[in-house]
Amino acid sequence: MKVNPALNLNSIKVNANRQIPDRNVDFKDTLKNELNRINDLQLKADQASQQLAVGEAEDIHSVLLAAEEARLALEMAIQIRNKIIESYQELSRMQV
C-alpha cells in the first residue's frame, strides 16, 4: 500500500541547508547577553517609574508599557531557564 507523504521531505532539506547557524557563537555568551538585555529592560522600567515619581514622566502609557515589556522579558527568561534546567535533568538521568 502506498501512503501519501504528509510532508514533502525534500523541501525541508532545502530549508535546513539555507540557514546554517553561526557556529562561532557560544551558548553561554548568548545566554549572558540576553540576560544582560533583560536586565537593561528592568532598569529602563525602573527609570520610567522614577521619572514618574519625580514628575518627569511624559505619559502614563509609556511608564506602564516599559514595566510591561520588562515583565514579559523576565517571564520569557524564566521560561527559558526552566526549559534549560529540564533538559539538563533529562540529560543527567540518561543512562550512559
Binding site: 540576553e34 529592560l41 514579559l72 522579558a73
Partner: peptide, 18 residues
C-alpha cells in the same frame, strides 16, 4: 529577546500612535 515586544513592528507603531 531584549525586545520580544520591541521587535514587533506593530507594537512599536501602536506605541508611537499612543
Amino acid at each position: 529577546m531584549s525586545s520580544i515586544l520591541g521587535a514587533d513592528n506593530t507594537y512599536n507603531l501602536l506605541k508611537k500612535a499612543l
